Computed example of a mutant assay.
Amino acid sequence: MSAELIDEIRAAFDEGLAIPYLGPGVLELAGDACTVPASPAALVARLTEKASVPHKIRDNLTAAAQFIENFKHRNTVKAAMTEAFTNEMEPTDFHRYLAALPKLPLLVHAWYDDLPNKALASRSEPWGVAQGISQTEHYGHWIHYFESDATLLPNPPESKFSVESCAPAMAPDEVKRWATLLYEPLGSIAPAQNYLVSDTDFVEVLTEIDIQTPVPEPVRDIRKGRHFLFLGCRFGKQLDRLWARQVSKRSSDFHWAVLPGELTKNELRFLEEKNIKRIDMTLEAFAEALMGSGAKVETQQPEMALGA
């Protein structure tokens, strides 16, 4: 039942065992206040407003970005992405709720906006960012690490996250550790305008993803024994499934996903493969229920681990 799953998720957050995984759909919670693209379709429309792209790829984000990169240079793509995601938006209440969780070892953000960064800025505990970067711009490197103040680090802090404790212990030298890591596999406008968006960007990642090279070592450590909560994500497209699969690899034996409405065959297969418990609610209703501000959750059809 949805109510039971929400209680289960809340308990997992209390124990530091749940990892939010935010897709572009989370931006829909901002309603009319959302001023940035909230879906791949909306983003590709923005990118092709000022660039002539063949009709057959105008609705394909990665292909359109690749065409612009090939014929107008990578900097044109980067500038268009930055323009699309430059904003003065405030985080939604749900962003703030997740960022304020006392035990939040990892927050995965698979889109390009900066609302999670803004929400985490209010945390009193130290936090940092691991961000995917393009091989086109940073050949030979997969990840950049940043302090919460946007300082670029040569390496991640030598922190050790474990299931037993969300906050890593201080070493004798008292080097600052991160209690929370924001992982952005696709990059983001903040803090340094890194974006993985073109075909070339993802082909480079795909050559290494099975052996986990592009996934930061701290993420591989934190996820052990923990459950992912997929929010604002759909799994109908191969690339979306790939990221969710590889980021959650070698974690716990089940997860959750808020997926309202009819599911595609690919989504159903993916839920079964990853043993994801589906919550058939709108994200708005789920967020209100989880935060405790919504009406009592109505009992719905049973949510099965096989993606019912």
Rank of each mutant, 00 (worst) to 15 (best):
residue 87 N to T: 14
residue 99 A to P: 02
residue 82 T to Q: 13
residue 79 A to P: 00
residue 92 T to P: 07
residue 90 E to F: 14
residue 99 A to G: 02
residue 84 A to N: 02
residue 93 D to M: 09
residue 84 A to E: 02
residue 83 E to V: 08
residue 98 L to Y: 08
residue 77 V to T: 01
residue 95 H to F: 08
residue 78 K to R: 14
residue 79 A to S: 11
residue 78 K to H: 09
residue 76 T to R: 04
residue 88 E to Y: 12
residue 91 P to I: 11
residue 95 H to V: 11
residue 99 A to C: 02
residue 97 Y to V: 08
residue 102 P to A: 04
residue 83 E to H: 12
residue 87 N to R: 03
residue 83 E to S: 13
residue 98 L to V: 11
residue 87 N to I: 04
residue 82 T to S: 15
residue 80 A to N: 00
residue 91 P to V: 06
residue 84 A to Y: 12
residue 96 R to V: 11
residue 99 A to D: 01
residue 81 M to N: 07
residue 93 D to G: 13
residue 75 N to K: 07
residue 101 L to G: 00
residue 98 L to F: 10
residue 73 H to P: 00
residue 82 T to W: 01
residue 92 T to W: 08
residue 86 T to M: 07
residue 96 R to I: 10
residue 81 M to W: 01
residue 79 A to V: 01
residue 94 F to T: 02
residue 96 R to W: 06
residue 88 E to I: 09
residue 80 A to L: 08
residue 95 H to R: 05
residue 100 A to G: 10
residue 81 M to P: 06
residue 91 P to Y: 10
residue 97 Y to M: 05
residue 100 A to F: 12
residue 82 T to E: 11
residue 100 A to P: 00
residue 74 R to T: 01
residue 77 V to S: 06
residue 83 E to P: 01
residue 89 M to R: 10
residue 75 N to G: 13
residue 102 P to D: 12
residue 89 M to D: 07
residue 91 P to S: 12
residue 89 M to F: 10
residue 74 R to N: 04
residue 76 T to G: 02
residue 88 E to R: 15
residue 98 L to M: 07
residue 78 K to I: 06
residue 81 M to R: 11
residue 92 T to M: 07
residue 86 T to N: 09
residue 90 E to V: 14
residue 91 P to E: 01
residue 78 K to Q: 13
residue 86 T to V: 02
residue 102 P to K: 05
residue 79 A to D: 11
residue 88 E to F: 13
residue 84 A to R: 01
residue 76 T to Q: 12
residue 82 T to R: 14
residue 83 E to K: 14
residue 75 N to Q: 14
